[in-house]
Each structure stands twice: as structure tokens, then as C-alpha cells.
Design a protein around this nucleic acid. Sequence first.
DNA 1: CGCTACATGTAATGAGTTACATGATTTT
DNA 2: AAAATCATGTAACTCATTACATGTAGCG
Lengths: 179, 179
Amino acid sequence: MSLKYALLGFLNYKSMTGYQLKQVFDESVRNFWHASLSQIYPTLSHMKDDGLLTLEVKYQDSSPNAKIYHITDSGRAELQNWLIEPMEPAQHRNAFLIKIFFGANIDKALIISQLNHRLELAENNLSKYQQIRSKMTENHFSENALTLFESLTVDFGIKNMEAVIAWYKESIEKIESIK
Amino acid sequence: MSLKYALLGFLNYKSMTGYQLKQVFDESVRNFWHASLSQIYPTLSHMKDDGLLTLEVKYQDSSPNAKIYHITDSGRAELQNWLIEPMEPAQHRNAFLIKIFFGANIDKALIISQLNHRLELAENNLSKYQQIRSKMTENHFSENALTLFESLTVDFGIKNMEAVIAWYKESIEKIESIK
DNA sequence: CGCTACATGTAATGAGTTACATGATTTT
DNA sequence: AAAATCATGTAACTCATTACATGTAGCG
């Protein structure tokens, strides 16, 4: 369960509500980690039970009471341990490659159009990531440890999109050239 | 549930037992899809209930009876539909990038050693994939539609490993250069 | 008048992992 | 004698998605 560690990471920077954590997720790590509110809320509550967080309730008239979570020493230790301890690379499943693997079963034009669709999406993603990266450079991001690491995750996205874009293009050509 | 479609894909080529399907998986698509026997068996049984497969029991003395599954017309149609219909790209989670994102919280040497470990693994994977690819070329693979698609999945793995290897190397350099 | 933001959850379902259970035959 | 191969499963658990449920305030 890495959601736990991502939550600890953000709460280590600043105490927040589940709702705010969702926003922070969506602004920063959405491209490689996403979590819904209906997953965040019970996870926070469970982490509180485990002593990783404490809860401060802020009473409000207009909205339901906001539950502000604070990281505890125990939570900080848990985060540290997770960051320090090496973990084996996850074996990602790729359903699209299953489709490609069995691609000979359908008309090649139908595969090519799916590849083209994904090529377009990947090109959009790439330019989105490149824009994020440019802004980081403008803002003198990645000149200190704190921001360097954030910029590396964007670089990962860029490298990845470049690789899949090249693969989409080559694959389309190869499939077109076969009789 | 893509396991279902992967099973249909293989059973479309040849009728098999769950045990044999596991072997076929491990020999061909393991690098982008893996399934355990304890997941395959109930899935096959469920697919049979749904009319996608029929069951032929082969009585044996030495081992438990082998259950050979055959794809039905309905199963073939389901496979076709899935192959034809476009699907949105999955949003993969990457726990390691979460670690990198919060990397400033720990000693940089501990991050670098994790990056180096993964770099080594990725280089091993790359050469493994390249060997598979060479054998395919030797065997005149990828000269017809049936084998071309299989070779494309290997090319994907190669492109991907090359990209992450470059990222690992750049990241290590950047982290080392920061004070 | 409807949409978005704020703010919280529960319940059901699906997908996958890990542990447990059985047992003969063949290979090292 | 131990390990691998053949061959089947069940049960408990984790992680994540989707649907459902509630309600105010402010903006256009």
C-alpha cells in the first residue's frame, strides 16, 4: 500500500484534510499516482488508528467539519523507513500489449487506428510534460534537492512518452508494410 | 478484466488446461502480463459458466484429471470485440516515482544506491529482451502478420528499458551534482 | 437555475496476491 | 532424499473503482 506513504509524504510537509490531499495529489503526482476521495478518507482514518496521524477537527458552519490530519513521530519514522528501504520493481500489466500480441486476429487497419489514437494522446502528454518542465526551469526549480526530485519525476514522464511515441510510429510502419 | 481476454487469445490458438495456459503465459507475455494459477483456475471456471468456454475432462491415473478448455463461438466473438474496440490507456501507478518525489527527505546516497540497483536490473532486462529479439530475427519471425505482432511487444520492452536506463543514469548524475 | 467548490463518508464489486491443501511421478 | 513437474483448487486479504448518500455557499 503506497497510498499510505504518499499521504505521509505530503502530510510531512503540511497538515491537511483529505480533501486538500486529493488536490495536492492532482497537482503534483497525478501522472504516476492517483487516488480517489473514497479511497483517501478511509485510508487516513486507518492511519490515524495505527498512530501514524493525529486528528484535529475544525468546526465549520457552512461545510461539514474539516478533519485536519497531522503526522506523528511514528508516521515520520514509517515514511523514512519506506523511503530508505529498497523495493523490487513492480511488474506492470499492459493490456494494450496483450491486444497487440493477438493483433493478427483482426484487420490490421483496426490496430493501426488504435495505435494512431494512442500516438496522438502520447504526443499531447509529451508536450504537457515539456511545458511543466519549462516552467520548473523558469522558476529555478531543480537547483536544490527539494525541487530537483520533483523535476526528475517529470523527466521520467518525458523520457517515457518519447519512447512510446517512437514505438507507436515504428509499429504503425511495420504493420502497414506487411501483406 | 484483461486476463479473460488473454486466456481467450491463447485458447483461440489451441485448447489447453489451466496449467498449460500458465506455462504459455510465462513463455510469451510474462513481461507485460502475469497471472498465477490461483487466479487462472477460477477465471476459467467462471468463463465456462458464461458460455465462453467448454470443458473436456481428461481422466488420468497419475495426476488429477486434466480439465481441457475449448473456446466457443461466443468466446471467439468476445475476443474479437475486445480486440476491435479501442480502450483508453491505463494510468499506471509508479511507487518508485513517489519515492523519488519525496527523495529530499533522505540521504542522497540512499537514493542513488536504489537508482543504481534498478539501473542494473534494467540493463539485464534490456539484454534479455535483445536476445529474445535476435532469436526472433534468426527464425524469420516478424515477416508475417502472426509473428510480427509478437515481435512488436518485445520491441516495446526494449524501447522502454532504453528509456528508463537513460533516466536512471541522468538522475544519478543530477542527484550527485547537487550540494 | 445549474455548476463548482467545499467536505465527509459507506457499500458493493472487481482484480490480484499469498497462504493453504492434496498427491503421484520423475528428475537431480 | 529432495526438488521439480503435473494438476487441481479454496480462503483470506489487500487494493482500487464505482455507485450511492448528504448538504451549504457562491458564481454566472
